[in-house]
Structure formats: C-alpha cells, structure tokens
Design a protein around this nucleic acid. Structure first.
Length: 911
RNA sequence: AGGCGGAUAGCUCAGUGGUAGAGCAGCGCCCUUACAAGGCGCGGGUCGCAGGUUCGAUCCCUGUUCCGCCUACCA
C-alpha cells in the first residue's frame, strides 16, 4: 500500500497508538470472569523521579509479559503508581527553600507540607508520561500514589494492627543519623564507601600505676564518650590489667578495662580498643554485654554537645577531631599515627554526609515473626524466584535481618498515628485521630512528630493497589499477583518487605513469581552516575531510535546475569530491525492485490497443503517451530532468547529467503501459485507481528492495521490471539492445524527440497563472488542433485534458484549425468554446484582451490574416522551420536569423492 | 573478609557434553522497483589460566587470576 513510507518513522506512530489503546480501554483487564488473571504491580518509582535505564528495563520486561499474557487469553492487569519518596522529596524542597533564604523550620510543618505538595504537583508525573512513551500497557484507571487517601488509610491500618499485635515498639537504640536531613536512616539507606583515613594511637594512663594502655582508633573525637577500654581476655600482654581502670585523657573520667573476645582482635592495632557505646554499633553491643553507661557526646546537629569539655563544645566532628588530637598531643597522650584504609557510611540521600551512629528513641518493627512465614513461602515454592540462584540471597538476607527502624524525623510522609500524653505518658495509637488519652483521659495529648519510612508504605503496595484493607473485588480477583519484576539489587527493599507484609496482611504471598534482572551499566562498564558522566537517558534513545528499538534491545538483555554494559550500537541495530520488518511488510502489502484472507484461512484450516511450493511448506513449518520456541523461552523467563529467535526468523528466513522466493511466483503467470504465495506471505507476517508485539508493540500494531484480515479478527493487535499451542497439535493464531501441517508428506519433502535450494544458492553466490562474476550479471549454472527423489521438487523450484543465483541458463541434472569440465565447482551436502567459466576461469587457480577443499575435507574425514575407529567411542557414546557421526562421515566421503572427480575433470581439460 | 555472578571474534552479547554463533565494527563487490537503516560474499576466536572427570570438555568438578554486584566489617 502506497501510504506506508519507505522508512519506518516511530515518532509518527507511537503516540497515536498509545492514545488509541488507552482510550479503547485495552489496558484494563478483560471483564470476562472466566479469564484467568495475570497481575503485575509496577514497583512504584519516585513521584518526582525521571525514567532511567533500570526503570526502562523493568517496564520493558513487565510490559512484554503482560502483553504476552493478555494476548494469550488472560485478564491481564498491570498496576501503576508512584512513591512519595520521603527523604528524597523533602531534600529537594528544602534545597529550594534554602535558595529562597528560608527553611522548613521557619515555615512550620503545615506550610512546609503545602510546599511539598505543590512541588509534587509541579514535578510529579513526569515518569508516568515517560512510561507511556515506552508503550507500557499499564492500567492508568487504577493509578495509586503512596500518599493518596486510600494508601494512607492502608498504612494506618497496617501500623495499628502491628502495634496491637505487639510487632511495633519504641526503643532507645543506636541508629544511623543523617544530621543534614535531621533524620534516622535504615541500614539500606547507608552507602558504605572506602575512605583513606588514619589510625591514631592514644595512651590511656592506668589508674594507680605508671603503666599506660595504648588504644588504636580512627575516630579520636569519640574518645570523649568512652566508657571502657577493651582487651582480649586471653591476651597475655594485658591479662593483668583486666578489672583495673584507666583515666580518660582530657576528660578525667575513670573507666574500666574489660576483657571482650567478640569486640577485640588481639592481632589488630595495639590489641586494645576504646569503647564508645553511644557512637559505634559494635561498642553499643559491647556496652550491653558489660552493662556500660552510654555517654553521648555528639548532638543531632552533628556537633559536639555539652557532655564534653568546654574546649570542644559546638564543634563539628571534623573540627573536634583536630582539636582533640591537638589536646592529646599537648598532654603527651598521642603516641602514634598511620594511614589507614577504611569504610565509612554515607547517607544515600546526601552523598557528602557521613552517617553518624547516635542513640535515639525510634519506632521499630519486630521482624522475626514476619520473616519466618516469608522464608517458608519461598522454601515451599508458593513464591518462586528467577533466576533460581537468587533464592540463596533471599534466604541469607531474611535470616540475618534486624528489627526495622521505621520512624523518620521528616515531615513529608505518613505521620505516625501515635499520641503521647503529657499527663500520664501513655501512648495512644489509633485509627481515628483521638481527642483524649486512652489511658487517663487527659486531652493533653500530642501526636508523635515522626513519619514512617517510605518503604513501610511500599511494602504494602501489592495490597494497597488492589484496594486493601477494603475487601474489594480487585483484591479478590487479582491477589496474589502473578509476577514481581525488579532489579536484583532491590530484592531486599521490595521483595523482602512485600513478602512479609503481603503474607501477614493479605493472607497469602504477594506474588507467585519473582523475576530479577541485572543492572544496566554505562558504556564504560561502570555503574551509571552523574559524576562519572556515563548516564544514558532512555527517553533520548526513544526520541532518536523509537521506543521499539530500545525495548528490543532491553529485551535481549533481560537474561543477563552479569551487569549489562549498555551498547548504543545495539540499540541502533534493533532500530534497523524495526525498519526491516516495516519494509518486509511494505513488500507484502504491495503484493496482496486480490488476496482473500478468508479463502486462504479456509485452506489452512482444512489442512489442504497439496499445492504448496517447497518455499511455502518450508516457511510455514518454520513459523510453527518458532512459535514453539518462543513459548518455551518466555515460559522460562528467557525473554532475550525469545527476542533473538524472532529476530533471526524475520531477517534470515522470512526476509532473506521466503520474500525473495515469493518474488518469483508473484511475478510469474501462475495465478493459483500467486494466490498461495500471497496467503503464505500474509499469514506468516501475521504470525510474526503477533509473536513480536509484546516486545515491539508500536511497529507491529501499525503494520497489522494495514494487513488484510478475516472479519472476526479484533480491531487491535494488542488483543489478538498470541500464536501458541493450545491443545496437542492445535494452535491459536493464524496457523491452527499445526499437526496436519507437520505431518503432511507434501510439506516434509518441500522442506527438504527448500533446504537444499538454500544451500545450492549460497554455494552458487560464493562461487560467483570468488570468480568475480558481477552481481548483476546472469551466468549459466549447473546443479547436479544426489538424491533422485528430490529432483522433481528442486526442478519445480528452479525458477527460484535461477532468480536468487542469477543463473541463466540453469540446468538441474541427476547424479551420473555429465557436467561441464571448464568450470568452478562447489560441493554441498546433497549436490554439486557447477559454474561453467569457459574462457574466464584460471584452471590452475581453480585446481589449487579444489585441492585446498580436498585437504580440508580429508582432514575432517580422517578425524571422524579416527573417532569412529575408537572402540571406546563405539561402546560408550550414545548410539544416536555414533549414528550421526557415521552419517557425517558418509556425507564427507561423498563430498570428497565429488571433489576428487572435479579435480579429475580439470585435469582432463588441461591434459 | 564472605556470598553470588561474569570471563566466548576488535566491541556488545547468545549458545551447547559430540563440526563455535549474532549484531556492530573491518574488507571486497553491488543504488537488482520492500529495505543503502539495504543486498551478496569474505576475513576474524588454542571459548581467562592450570589441573581433573569423560570415548569426547568451551560446557561438568577443583583450584587460580581478573572484573562486577551484594552483604559484613578490625577499632
């Protein structure tokens, strides 16, 4: 059809089709209650975030699966939404306020929150639009935001239930403190980074003796909060000191010397460690073991507090370190210093801020009772993780998980529904805001200022998006969901928490399958980061090459276990693929004049294959093979192999061979053959479009709309039948009777003949190229076919061979018939391809070439014969392998004989 | 330090206990009315290294080197 342009232009197609799909409601699950559900929840990105490669990979894989299932008869539901991203968003707004010369404290909580909502309105939703550009078939009518009323109600219900069950408690503990954001962080929000630091040795005088105990430390400023010094209990150097006390320099406090085998490694440093329970996690644990007091010397502002001598007060940690070292130097207590590589935790939200361990009162979730069922669900297979080896990571993480600190000292988030009573101290936790203390009835109550960790609401996401805690129809129908797909680096953030909450509140696992993909790295093989400048923007790639090209690329990377090193060249390659498909379709559509889809479909349905030419039989049978292959790959979560199979079939079989063969028939004068060719062209194209649609939805839909179809087909490829085996040898899609096709004698011999045709043509082309026959020039060709049974089929296909090999005249002869002597010859498995070159050929050169081929064949044959002569091989190798090698030997022997005969012919000419 | 993954053509990646593949890049020839974002042909790899199992190992096992990720960290 003339209206298809000669190059595929994604920009003119993509937006239009997305609009149509959405407007027709195809993103919503089918209402039909008999359809089995297939549910996927998109891991909610930050509401103000932008699409990066990881999101694009996630969305591509999920969309491919959702579209595949939707076309395969499921009620497919893919749920979108965004996350309020507590710290990240608050930091952005605070930055804006700072630029205006104000702060959230100045504004006050209420006004500040207004500003955050305003920010969210202005900057939110970009990522949703970007997902649309990718073609994501998300059900936007079920969109959810973690801070919307429904989600907030779910969060509140979950909090209250856990509190009532004793699974939420408050405790005074060491937490990771981000002094810049003024909030606690979970372990997962701390990025450990190696830092070149120093280790200092400080002498602590032992009380009542001249001895000095030398400790090693990387954080001298915390010595002001020391409450003990620890040595290994079995260290002979210090055994006599255990139980005595040292006098803390600069402070004068007398602190005990303790023996602790857990904390102290006698080999490291001096074998003596200062213990600062308020500022170090290991020391905190040590303090608990030895009942040591907590002396907190660093305040929430990251500065030294008034627990330290005047000289150090109000100083930042960095300043205090210098000052403490100077003071120690003055009193002669600093006795050593050396460089030391170490790891420091930084805030993932403020990458320049070193996280400070501080004692603080926080809210925690007691995870032990939640972990066990979550582990059990994976152990007994109710949830299956792909790739399988990631299961071990899950177990290890779940088995070592600590209680989860869920309070954040932020304003943007779900405020903790707990009210503190000023009169009696009781804490009232309630679903509805209370007006009085539940214990003493006092109205002097105040809501806890903290909000919940964003992951608390995200952990509930598979439930929240389906309407929980209400018993909604969606929850009934679509929970548990089918698939959770995300990067393996997020296994712990998402999967673990959703599993715990899903089972606890939903009564069943949140998802049946977890599929984890790898991480997309920059072209330099490093993690993408702004500072490295190796970030690739998926939207830019869509602008440049189209969404389908990007999707195809990402699909081929979905099976990667190691990091995915981004390759722009491959994205371009897949754009070329889209263009190839487009042009193949253009060719087909230009040649469908007079084509009757119903008539040809009827022929296929009736199993009437008698009039198929070899090429027709071959491509139809191959199409069915690919249908089976793709199904296997998709079921095994090998989207990459599915994509690869489709690519290979389209380019190297359908385009390179079938289309070229079809040209001969289409231009010929056999009307019935032309009709069949049209049918096969259109049918196989239809199969291809359906197979590829989940990966490249736009270009396939655009083409499909132009393809003449039977009246009963739906009005969009999105909801057309995916080609698949449905019942034994019956198939859904355009080729229903696969069994009949495969078992047809006509089809089987046609396939064999066309395989030989392809080999013959390739050999002829190679000969022509080698002997410099110009590509356009017609030259005579002789093909001598070994197997007499194949000769009739090959003769029928002669026009195809003639066309593809530019052979004129072409003669096809049987074994035993003479072939020209002054010629170049290529020997293939079942035939000799002879290119007569009277007056052109250099006989010596041809002789040398043939001798080379003989040597090669002989070498192979000898190797094979050696192998077959080995009695161990014959007795121990499987019979089918032996048989295969014997067949190969016979073939090689045949080829060798033909080559030798060829050489003889050349000798005859020369002689 | 532990766990996991990777190592295959110049680059990005498939693959298999039984004759090594694709895309891109390279070379040569072609604007043959679907496609120059194309066609045809060609070159290019002791499948990281060393052992072992096996009739046979790129594939399975052990060790080793390098790279990546995760977790935990010695003050």
């Amino acid at each position: 059809m003339a209206e298809l342009r000669s190059t595929y232009d994604p920009a003119s197609v993509e937006e239009r089709w997305y609009e149509v799909w959405q407007q027709r409601g195809y993103f919503r699950p089918a209402d039909d209650p008999d359809k089995a559900p297939f549910t996927v929840v998109l891991p909610p990105p930050n509401v103000t975030g932008r699409l990066h490669m990881g999101h694009a990979l996630t969305a591509t894989i999920e969309d491919a699966y959702v579209r595949w299932k939707r076309m395969s008869g499921y009620a497919a539901l893919w749920l979108p939404g965004t996350d309020h991203a507590g710290i990240a968003t608050q930091v952005m707004v605070e930055r804006q306020l700072a630029a205006e010369g104000t702060s959230r404290q100045e504004l006050g909580r209420e006004k500040f929150l207004e500003r955050v909502w305003q920010w969210k309105e202005e900057h939110g939703g970009i990522i949703d639009r970007q997902h649309k550009r990718l073609g994501a078939s998300l059900d936007w009518s079920r969109y959810r935001f973690t801070m919307d009323p429904e989600s907030s109600a779910a969060v509140r219900e979950a909090f209250c239930r856990l509190y009532e069950e004793g699974l939420i408690y408050r405790a005074h503990r060491l937490i990771n403190w981000d002094w810049k954001s003024q909030t606690a962080l979970s372990d997962l929000e701390v990025d450990p980074r190696p830092v070149q630091g120093r280790i200092w040795k400080i002498a602590y005088p032992v009380e009542g003796s001249d001895e000095r105990l030398v400790v090693a430390t990387t954080r001298p400023e915390t010595m002001l909060g020391d409450t003990a010094v620890a040595v290994h209990p079995e260290d002979p150097r210090y055994a006599h000191l255990v139980g005595k006390r040292v006098v803390l320099p600069l402070v004068g406090r007398k602190i005990p010397i303790i023996g602790d085998a857990i904390l102290v490694d006698p080999e490291f440093g001096t074998g003596a460690v200062k213990v600062t329970p308020a500022h170090d996690f290991n020391d905190f644990e040590t303090g608990k073991r030895h009942d040591l007091p907590l002396v907190c010397v660093i305040g929430p502002d990251g500065r030294m507090n008034d627990q330290v001598p005047e000289r150090f007060r109000g100083r930042t940690v960095q300043e205090a370190r210098k000052e403490v070292l100077a003071a120690l130097e003055e009193v002669g207590a600093l006795v050593g210093e050396e460089p030391h590589e170490m790891v420091v935790g930084f805030s993932s939200r403020n990458p320049d801020v070193a996280v400070e361990p501080l004692p603080s009162t926080q809210w925690f979730v007691k995870v032990a009772p939640l972990v066990e069922p979550a582990l059990e669900a994976v152990r007994d297979g109710r949830t299956v993780i792909h790739p399988e080896h990631r299961t071990a990571d899950y177990y290890r993480w779940m088995e070592n998980i600590h209680d989860w600190c869920i309070s954040r000292q932020l304003w943007w988030g779900h405020r903790i529904p707990a009210w503190h009573c000023r009169a009696c101290g009781h804490i009232t936790v309630a679903r509805e805001d209370p007006s009085a203390c539940a214990s003493c009835g006092s109205s002097e109550i105040e809501q806890d200022p903290d909000v919940l960790d964003t992951w608390f609401s995200s952990g509930l996401w598979p439930l929240t998006t389906l309407g929980w805690p209400l018993r909604s129809d969606d929850l009934e129908r679509f929970y548990p969901t089918s698939l959770m797909e995300t990067g393996y680096d997020i296994l712990f953030f998402w999967v673990a928490r959703m599993m715990m909450f899903g089972i606890h509140f939903g009564g069943d696992v949140p998802f049946r399958t977890v599929f984890l993909h790898s991480m997309v790295l920059g072209e330099d093989g490093q993690k993408m980061s702004k500072t490295r400048g190796n970030v690739v923007d998926p939207v830019e790639l869509i602008d440049e090459h189209g969404a389908d090209a990007l999707r195809f690329y990402l699909a081929t990377m979905a099976g990667q276990d190691a990091g995915i090193i981004f390759s722009r060249a491959r994205v371009e390659g897949y754009r070329h693929f889209c263009n190839k498909l487009w042009n193949a379709a253009r060719f087909v559509l230009m040649n469908l004049e007079g084509y009757d889809p119903d008539a040809f479909a009827g022929r296929l349905a009736a199993g009437d294959f008698d009039d198929l030419a070899a090429a027709d039989a071959w491509i139809l049978a191959r199409a069915l093979d690919v249908v089976d292959d793709v199904a296997g790959h998709l079921e095994g979560f090998r989207l990459d192999l599915a994509a690869h199979a489709i690519y290979q079939f389209v380019w190297y079989e359908y385009c390179d061979w079938y289309l070229e063969a079809a040209k001969v028939t289409l231009r010929g004068d056999d009307a019935s053959a032309r009709e069949i060719t049209q049918g096969v062209l259109a049918t196989v194209l239809d199969v291809i479009l359906r197979l590829a649609h989940p990966i490249v939805p736009f270009v396939t839909e655009e083409i499909w709309q132009h393809l003449p179809k039977r009246a009963e087909e739906p009005d969009s490829l999105m909801i057309a039948d995916y080609p698949r085996r449905i019942d034994g040898e019956r198939y859904a899609g355009p080729i229903p009777d696969g069994g009949a096709l495969r078992s047809s004698q006509m089809v089987r011999s046609g396939r064999r003949a066309f395989d030989l045709v392809r080999e013959v043509v390739t050999a002829a082309r190679a000969l022509r190229a080698e002997f410099r026959v110009p590509p356009g020039k017609r030259a005579p060709l002789v093909v001598r076919v070994d197997d007499a049974d194949l000769v009739p089929d090959v003769r029928l296909a002669a026009p195809v061979v003639a066309s593809l090999a530019r052979a004129e005249p072409l003669s096809i002869v049987e074994a035993g018939e003479a072939v020209p002597k002054v010629a170049a010859t290529e020997v293939v498995g079942g035939a000799e391809v002879v290119l007569p070159l009277e007056g052109v050929i250099d006989l010596d050169a041809e002789r040398t070439r043939i001798e080379g081929e003989i040597a090669k064949a002989r070498k192979q044959l000898e190797g094979l014969e050696r192998k077959l002569a080995n009695p161990n091989f014959r007795s121990k190798a499987p019979p089918e392998i032996v048989a295969k090698d014997e067949a190969r030997r016979d073939e090689l022997a045949g080829m060798l004989a033909k080559l030798e005969a060829t050489l003889q012919r050349l000798a005859d000419v020369a002689g």
